[in-house]
Simulated scan of single mutants.
Amino acid sequence: MSSAAPAEPTTVHTVLGPVPADELGVVAVHEALLSVLPGAQHAHDIDFDRAEIFTTLLTKLRDFRAAGGGTLVDSTGMFHGRDVPMYENLSRASGVHIVASTGLGPENLLGGYFLTPETTPPPPWPAEKFADLFTEEITDGMVVPRVERRGAAGLITTAANLAGTTATEESLFRGAARAARDTGVALSLRYGKDPLADLDVVLDENLPADRVVVGGLDRRDAVAAGAPADIAARGAYIALDHVGTEDEHHVSDAERVTLVTELVAAGFGNRILLSSNATGVAKGHPARDLPFGCVLTTFAPQLRAAALTEDDIARILITNPRELLAVASAR
């Protein structure tokens, strides 16, 4: 009688090194620790007291842990405030696993270097150059400018312009998909105008759908078009990642509860991810000032009131993000 081969062990790249995937606990899968509008760190009228920033973030991370959180994913990417040495110290002091990300986007925040400005009009950077850039941050460690490389990025994150994906952003998406395909690290895709079309771009690079999460699917346009169910049916993860926000662009939490229960009833509970897109500290732009534990403290109780089971909630908050972030352990 033959026995099944044991499952290959998986780990998650955190700023303090690989962590067994089953130790992540509840994951806030799309948040921002320090979010800096590129260039704001050099502005004379913006205070950039690193000790104060650290203290503020540590308090928020400890509150997240007290609420039941285990892991926070900082999905700001490469040049929007990511501070890997600070995140290492925050993780040690708070006991929260921190997954930092590589990636870029949207185009208007790339900077001229990535637009090959020596030509007019500037053509997109080749997808392969984006792929190499992101792959090195996973295999060799994330860049700390002019200092060194540190721990490996645990996610590739990229975004398009809300008015519609540009040629440069398509190149960016393709490069990110190639890096995800070749390293095993998942890709977080924040769509522009058409989530299914943007998903098609990355799947065209032979990236398995279950290594992709499409974010922002609690936007009103996405919900009205039925995009969350359509994308889940294709095998990708769907992120309702503005929990706690209701504005002209996003549905309310009550509508999110209805959407989650409908998706679970349709058999897509294994594809749902929740987060609040909270900003711990923002410089140069307004913060989305929500607790990192917002999903745990305010939204999960609403799901329970809507008769979602504890198993359903655990699947969404623990199992789904764990499966998304996990990569095969090095032997």
Rank of each mutant, 00 (worst) to 15 (best):
S2M: 06
S3M: 15
A5R: 14
T11Y: 11
V12T: 08
H13S: 14
L16W: 00
P18R: 04
P20A: 13
V26M: 04
A28Y: 01
A28D: 02
V29D: 03
E31C: 03
L33D: 04
A40P: 00
D45V: 07
D45I: 03
F48G: 08
R50D: 06
I53W: 01
T55Y: 05
L57V: 02
L58N: 08
R62C: 02
D63L: 07
G70M: 01
D74Q: 07
H80Q: 11
H80G: 02
G81M: 12
R82G: 04
R82N: 08
R82W: 11
D83T: 11
Y87P: 02
L90S: 12
S94L: 12
G95Q: 11
V99G: 10
G103L: 05
N108M: 10
L109P: 00
Y113F: 12
F114Q: 08
P117T: 14
T119H: 12
T119G: 00
P121G: 12
W125F: 13
E136F: 00
E137R: 09
G141Y: 02
G141C: 07
P145H: 09
V147E: 14
E148N: 10
A153K: 01
L155K: 08
I156Y: 09
T158E: 05
A163V: 09
A163L: 13
T165V: 13
T166M: 02
A167P: 00
A167S: 12
L172W: 04
R178L: 15
R178A: 09
D182L: 08
G184H: 05
V185A: 08
L187E: 01
G192K: 01
L199F: 08
L203I: 07
A209Y: 03
V213K: 08
V214C: 06
V214M: 06
R219Q: 15
A222I: 00
P228Q: 11
A232Q: 02
D241S: 08
E248W: 07
H250S: 03
E255A: 15
R256F: 10
L259F: 14
V264T: 11
A266E: 13
G267F: 12
F268R: 09
R271V: 05
I272Q: 02
G280Q: 05
V281G: 00
G284V: 08
G284H: 04
H285K: 11
L290G: 06
L290E: 09
Q302A: 15
A306Y: 15
L308C: 14
D312T: 10
A314P: 00
T319I: 05
P321D: 10
R322S: 13
E323N: 15
A328S: 14
